[in-house]
Amino acid sequence: MDEIKHDLQNPSKATHQDLFGKGITYLCIGFVSLLVISILYFITTRGLATFTTNHVSLWKFLSGTNWNPALLDKHGNPQIGALPMIVTSFSVTVLAAVVATPFALGVALFMTEIAPEKGTKILQPVIELLVGIPSVVYGFIGLSVIVPLIRHSFGGTGFGILAGTLVLFVMVLPTITSLSVDSIKAVPMFYRSASLALGATRWQTIYKVVLRSATPGILTAIIFGMSRAFGEALAVQMVIGNAVLMPHGLLTPSSTLTSQLTTGIGNTTMGTLPNNALWSLALILLLMSLVFNVLVRIIGKRGALKK
């Protein structure tokens, strides 16, 4: 009797195990959190050095169109205008999303509304395969198929925003598709039955009921796709041409933030202005990634409020 009393009032092996387990998992998640904080901290401090140490004006950095960090212009200021890369990055991102969205929605609707069973069986692996293909392989195919194709059809070098868009469109397609599928699937079945019972055709039901209620989810899907396109480095770098020039159309070689980073970091010395300027580009990438995150959250909240 007293033994049981003692057992009940004192810690046992189980208590210690639990403390041990808690400790380990807290440590792991702590590590992950610390990692995120240090990434944000290091990239931010490095990225700000251009403005704090080298005293480049932020406005000039964002609006200047000449990128040649190693050289001074005629007023003796370093030429670090990041606008061409910012414009190119946004162009390929938006264009890729614009091209990909109809395809993604078509596939998503096919998988959910038109032929749910067969469609999923065939298209789910298709999406997974598209996700699985590494970005360098996309870049290689872009380089050996798309760039020559553009060169022959439109002239010029073939490198440029159009080539970048075509490569990125395929890369973001699976992201937008699978998230759209999720949001369309989340539309309650009775919405559809109600609409069909009122005599609406399948397309009217899809267009007026299903897509309407899935809109926040589809927007989220598109933003995730854009986020992937904006941050993609090597595939774009291989087909964009890598000339830091203000793009004058879809066919002239230009450079995105990521492509400039991958080409440049190895050729500059740590701590110098040309190097700092590159870290500032990385900071823009980081900030944009956070912006996309925030956008997704805002849309998620709006969508939740509407329901």
Partner: peptide
């Protein structure tokens, strides 16, 4: 959770540079 989400959405080139 937000931190994990941010980490998963960071461009891999940024992670590499870090």
């Amino acid at each position: 959770r937000t931190a994990v989400e941010v980490l998963s959405s960071l461009p891999s080139v940024v992670v590499g540079l870090f």
